[in-house]
Simulated scan of single mutants.
Amino acid sequence: MTNPANPPNVPARGGPGLPQVRRLVTEIPGPRSRALAARRSAAVARGVGETLPVYVHAAGGGVVVDVDGNSLIDFGSGIAVVSVGNAADGVVEAVREQVGRFTHTCFMITPYEGYVAVCEALNRLTPGDHDKRTALFNSGAEAVENAVKIARSATGRSAIVVFEHAYHGRTNLTLAMTAKSTPYKAGFGPFAPEVYRVPLAYPYRWPTGREHCGEQAAARVIELVRDEIGAGEVAAMVIEPILGEGGFIVPGRGFLPRLAEFCADAGILFVADEIQTGFARTGQMFACEDEGVVPDLITTAKGIAGGMPLAAVTGRAEIMDAPQVGGLGGTYGGNPAACAAALAAIGFIESADLPARARGIGELALPRLRALA
């Protein structure tokens, strides 16, 4: 019996060497994918969803090859993760070299240079020339949770302001911060308290049209924070500079800068959730740079490490240093193999100038998309 994990007539490994072509050799899903789907239904919890019922055997560049030998264009990128290409040579080599030396010590027990080097890179790359500090975690939701912890510790306040259409994660606190009920929140409450939702500057749906959307929405948010929540109670305002799961919404121009200005005046920390938009995906290294916004804290994950699990919170030194020693961390946060992958991925993003590459794709695609609209 053929093992579906080692099918014939498919590449032995992924990476940039895979032919960058779309090629169908079976129906979708093919027989080996269907066999694996049967095993999945008997072994994997029903709540773990899927988008495309093919089982990947190899991936590289912009394609994935399934266990039946079909080569498919990879528009998913692991939910915006493998920005440098799947199994990129530099990332693979860095991980291989690191795991050959050691796989884990826990940075809080016995530290290592890779963790420090990733923090140095994020302090350098994130917006603003102020003194910064960084802490590393495993996932985007962990980064958001820790940003909230840090903000509450630094300000002595408890309330968190989030936005319509937001997505911040699947843990209890980040579900409270996430807007969409189904499938994320339904049946999982009660959720963490002291989270308040306010309107988003959604140009396509703003009642008076897109021209004044940014300024009008910002004025409404500021009014709600002052009058209904109490600005003096708010530790942080958390927003995705471009919303992802909520519908890929670019807020109206001027919305983010005006809110950042208000937060600075009110002693509220402005937190940019750049977990999906960070690392060259929007034509800038970080999306908030488009309007010159410098957040107090910025959360990153996804594109940071070429597919290895890593996340971070970076921010102003005095804010990041507010929690007590031992108040931040985790067993696997900043795993050495993930740190090695991040340094390789960041090096490639910079050397290949992937922000410029993203701008080039935008210049090609946007005129055609606007014509379709």
Score class of each variant (00 low, 15 high):
169 G>T: 05
59 A>K: 04
173 L>N: 09
36 L>P: 11
130 H>S: 10
58 A>L: 03
95 V>A: 01
45 A>Y: 12
154 A>V: 03
75 F>N: 13
174 T>L: 11
146 N>W: 06
88 A>K: 05
91 V>K: 03
47 G>I: 15
140 G>L: 04
85 G>T: 08
105 T>S: 11
179 A>Q: 14
173 L>P: 08
31 P>Q: 12
120 E>R: 13
134 T>R: 02
138 N>W: 10
143 A>I: 00
53 P>T: 07
57 H>W: 01
40 R>P: 10
77 S>W: 12
161 V>T: 05
124 R>L: 14
145 E>S: 13
76 G>C: 11
143 A>F: 00
142 E>F: 10
70 N>Q: 01
112 Y>S: 12
115 Y>I: 06
83 S>K: 13
133 R>T: 02
52 L>V: 15
90 G>E: 08
117 A>G: 09
43 A>F: 08
110 T>M: 14
141 A>I: 04
55 Y>M: 10
110 T>R: 14
40 R>K: 15
144 V>S: 02
94 A>E: 03
117 A>D: 09
125 L>G: 01
58 A>G: 01
72 L>P: 00
165 H>G: 13
142 E>S: 09
175 L>H: 09
58 A>F: 03
59 A>L: 04
131 D>V: 05
48 V>D: 08
113 E>D: 11
157 R>W: 07
85 G>P: 06
130 H>L: 12
139 S>A: 13
33 S>A: 09
160 I>W: 05
121 A>G: 04
138 N>Q: 11
32 R>S: 12
81 V>K: 15
81 V>S: 13
109 I>T: 13
135 A>S: 06
76 G>Y: 14
166 A>M: 08
44 V>C: 12
58 A>V: 02
114 G>F: 03
140 G>R: 00
97 E>F: 10
70 N>Y: 00
79 I>D: 15
140 G>F: 01
170 R>L: 08
75 F>S: 13
86 N>G: 09
93 E>A: 11
62 G>A: 15
136 L>G: 00
119 C>K: 15
124 R>N: 06
97 E>C: 02
45 A>Q: 10
124 R>V: 04
118 V>H: 03
54 V>Q: 01
57 H>R: 07
143 A>W: 01
132 K>Y: 00
144 V>E: 01
126 T>P: 03
126 T>F: 03
67 V>S: 02
64 V>S: 02
160 I>D: 03
101 R>Q: 13
82 V>F: 15
66 D>E: 02
42 A>L: 10
114 G>Q: 07
148 V>N: 03
106 C>I: 13
157 R>L: 04
125 L>D: 05
167 Y>I: 12
